[in-house]
Amino acid sequence: MGNLFDRLRGRRDRAKSGHVARERLRLILVHDRTNLSEEQLAQLRDEMIELISKYVDVDRDNVEISVERHQTENWLVANIPLRIDRARRG
């Protein structure tokens, strides 16, 4: 019956533990796959944001970095939301 009640409450998927698990897993695998420490990773993130902010307005709080596996290669993937997008949507 979860779905009906979820709807009545207004979905709060962000708080669901499945979502939390997904996010924690993503961060853990970034560390495991790159061997970067938490500080190094934070530094990478900050420097990347600094660089890109020179050109476009970045939504700093929602930047996501992950390491994805593609066949035998690992890709560093950064999702960098921009503020202009939000403004357009109103």
Partner: peptide, 12 residues
């Protein structure tokens, strides 16, 4: 649990 959003999904 998957349906309630309380477990990693197969796709995840």
């Amino acid at each position: 649990m998957v349906r309630r959003g309380e477990m990693l999904t197969v796709d995840d």
